[in-house]
């Protein structure tokens, strides 16, 4: 079956951070908005006796808005991933568990305000456990997964303010713990 899921990160480390201070080291601004989401799709590419070899794809967005007097800073990070790995189905009833692992490549695009974008590619990996509800051509899926991208890549910037400066920092490294929900379709038994 093909899985399509929307993920809501519970833990999201990486992407942009920003802060602004005056010359007396008093913080000038505040983070007014931050959020992220992810979309996942995976499908079996080969079926073994006890597991599927699946192709995992996905993408997501992390965004931040920081506002200081006279200036607001937006930073957004888009990422795409393509991974390959095993998936196991646990159980045989209307409610079945599954577990999966993936390893592949991830591209991340950082979009800071007032500066060039920065793009990097890296190795990514994930692990997930979840439950599939129902049988037939369309089933529900909920899962908990961890995603990570490792990188030494980073970017940073300083923007002069009339009475201080705003600094931002971006890292390509990320770690997410995500709750996701979606559908499974396409028919065919999962391996077990």
């Amino acid at each position: 079956m093909i899985h399509l899921l929307v993920g809501l990160p519970l833990v999201d480390v990486g992407g942009f951070r920003a802060s602004a201070y005056d010359t007396q080291f008093n913080e000038l601004g505040e983070e007014v908005a931050a959020g992220s989401f992810a979309l996942y799709a995976d499908a079996p590419v080969h079926r073994f006796r006890r597991l599927d070899l699946r192709l995992y794809t996905g993408g997501g967005l992390q965004s931040l808005r920081y506002e200081a007097p006279g200036l607001s800073f937006d930073g957004a990070t888009w990422d795409l991933l393509a991974e390959l790995g095993p998936a196991w189905t646990i159980g045989d009833g209307a409610v079945r568990g599954f577990a999966e692992l993936g390893l592949g490549v991830s591209g991340r695009l950082g979009l800071p305000d007032y500066a060039d974008a920065v793009a990097v590619f890296g190795v990514s990996g994930h692990g997930a456990v979840g439950v599939t509800f129902g049988r037939g051509p369309l089933a529900g899926v909920v899962a908990f997964r961890t995603d990570s991208v490792g990188s030494l890549a980073s970017a940073s910037g300083d923007i002069l303010l009339p009475d201080g400066s705003l600094s931002w920092y971006w890292t390509a490294s990320t770690f997410r713990a995500v709750v996701s929900a979606g559908v499974a379709f396409g028919g065919g038994p999962d391996a077990r």
Binding site: W88, S124, D147, S151, A153, F175
Partner: peptide, 30 residues
């Protein structure tokens, strides 16, 4: 402060020091 997003800097492959973390998380769950 005029935004300039016309150019992209630094297309490069990156290290994978963190990448196994997601796999390790999954293995732990398993």
């Amino acid at each position: 402060l005029t935004p300039d997003r016309a150019s992209v800097t630094g297309i490069a492959a990156v290290g994978a020091a963190w990448a196994p973390a997601g796999l390790l998380g999954g293995l732990t769950l398993l």
